[in-house]
Simulated assay, not measured.
Amino acid sequence: MEAFVTTLLLTAIVQTGDRSQLLCAALAMRFARPGQMITAVLAASIAGAAIAALGGVIVGDWISRDALALFYALSLLFAGMGMLAWRRPVDLLQGWRIGPFVTALLGVMILQFGDKGQFIIAATAARSHDAVWPLLGGAVGTTLGLMPALIWQDELARWPLRPVRIAMGGVVTAIGLLLALRAFGLV
C-alpha cells in the first residue's frame, strides 16, 4: 500500500505546470468534450503506468538492494530537477484531425513516455517488487495531476503555477538528494 500512496502523491505533484498539463488544458478548450478527455487521459495514464511498472519489476530483479535504493533516489532527484528546469513549449497538436479521444490519448501518452512520472513508477515498482500498486498509484496520480487542466482549462493560465512548481520541485529534489546520500551511506 505504501507503493500506491507514494507513487500517487509523487506522480500527481510532478504534473504541476508540466507540458502534459498544458496540453490537456489546450485540448480540453479545443474539443470541449470533458468526458472523452478524462477517459483518454485515464487510458493514457494507465498505459504509461503499466509500461513503467512492468519495466520496474523486471529491472528490480536484476539489480541489488543498494542499487534499487539509488535508482529510487535518482528518480526523485531528477524529477525534482526537471520541475525546476526550463521546459520547451508544448505542441498543441493543431494539425491532428483524429478526434478528441484519440488526440488526447496519443498526445498524453507521447508526452508521458519516459517522463519523470514514469521513472518514479518504475523505481517504486523495482523497489517494492510489485507492479500492481505502483501501476495503480501512478495511473491515479497522473490522472489527478492532469485533472485541473481538464476542469479549469484557460483559468489554469492565470494560476501561479511557476512558483508552486518551483517549490514542489525543490521539495522533491531535496528528498531525492537525501535518499541518494542515504543510498551511498553518507547520511
Rank of each mutant, 00 (worst) to 15 (best):
R65T: 03
S75L: 03
D91Y: 06
I38H: 12
F71P: 04
A12E: 06
P100N: 09
A79V: 00
R19P: 06
G82C: 08
L106K: 08
Q94E: 15
V41F: 04
L8D: 11
L22F: 15
A104G: 13
L84M: 15
L23V: 11
Q36D: 08
T103H: 09
F71C: 07
Q94T: 15
Q21N: 15
S20C: 11
L70Y: 02
D61H: 14
L27Y: 15
A67G: 02
A73F: 03
P100A: 15
R87T: 09
G95I: 10
R65M: 04
I38S: 08
L84Q: 15
A43I: 00
Y72D: 03
I58C: 04
V41M: 11
L84H: 13
T16S: 13
V14Q: 06
Y72Q: 05
P34Q: 01
G99M: 12
R65G: 02
S75H: 05
A85D: 14
L70Q: 06
V57H: 08
L23C: 12
L27Q: 11
T7A: 08
L77Q: 01
W86D: 11
P34G: 04
T39E: 09
Q36I: 00
L8F: 12
S64M: 03
T6D: 01
A50K: 03
M83I: 11
P34M: 00
F101Y: 13
G35Q: 03
G82Y: 03
G55H: 10
R33E: 13
R30M: 06
Y72W: 07
P89Y: 01
M83Y: 14
V90A: 12
M83K: 13
V14A: 01
L76C: 08
M37T: 14
A85E: 11
A52L: 00
Q15R: 13
G17R: 11
D61M: 07
S45M: 00
G48P: 04
A69C: 02
T16F: 06
L27C: 08
D61T: 08
A25K: 11
W86G: 03
I38F: 11
L70I: 00
L68D: 05
F78V: 06
G99Y: 10
S20N: 14
D66Q: 13
V57G: 01
G95F: 09
A40D: 12
G60C: 07
F31Q: 08
A32D: 14
Q15F: 07
I63E: 09
A104R: 03
A79P: 02
T16Y: 05
